[in-house]
Design a protein around this nucleic acid. Structure first.
Lengths: 109, 109
DNA sequence: TCGATTATTCGACATAATTCGAAATATAAT
DNA sequence: ATTATATTTCGAATTATGTCGAATAATCGA
């Protein structure tokens, strides 16, 4: 139905809005390079390797205060681009694999 | 150089911003389906077929006033997503093929 | 040249986004 | 229990976006 297509357009527009801020885009790209479920994880600069990136990690590199990072990440999640899961004190973030697939095919279909 | 990558991120963020409005996204998708240079053109509903879509055509379907459409299209062009060319009274719009290629590969690289 | 068609620019207003610091909440460690 | 760490929420200020109508400009045909 055409209504469905309408809804998809709204949804993709929402995703693109979430990615329209350079810092949010950087966060998203970083998660793509290290935190796609089912993909070998990235070894960090430090002595330790990490499975995934928590909210604080994502902010450190970008020099952004925690409240702003938290807000960014919420927007990425609301757009369906990432998943979040509390792990103790931290909240781990990862790419939403099905959304990434949808984006991959969006411009090719 | 890393500066280059920075610049690319800014550029892609700009593209996503242009596509973050549902009406602009619809315009972009319509142009993809009919006005990519070097691709067989789409046959319209009317008796006549058209090579490409002019600014006015793009607005008619969406029920948006000309000034707004003109504004939208300017944003898409400034983001590098489309090309425009005056053809008599009308201004024909088409997809910028190299940008489309860049977008296709963005989520896959 | 005049009028019709098409597109752009301008000015205005309402709505939304950006971003921060402060305060609040959740969890872990001592 | 208290403290430290990580994150979220809230309130506020600034800036940007969306959208329109009116005015302006470009081009074609009679």
């Amino acid at each position: 139905m055409s209504n469905n297509r309408e809804k998809n357009i709204e949804k993709f527009a929402e995703m693109f809005k979430a990615l329209s801020n350079p810092n949010r885009l950087k966060i998203f790209l970083r998660l793509i390079s290290c935190c796609v479920p089912g993909v070998i994880t990235h070894i960090k600069d430090s002595v330790e390797s990490e499975e995934c990136a928590c909210v604080g990690d994502l902010g450190k590199d970008l020099g952004i205060v925690p409240s702003t990072i938290s807000h960014y990440i919420k927007e990425l999640r609301q757009a369906g681009l990432i998943n979040m899961e509390r792990q103790g004190q931290k909240v781990e973030c990862s790419i939403a694999p099905e959304t990434l697939i949808a984006l991959k095919s969006f411009f090719s279909s």
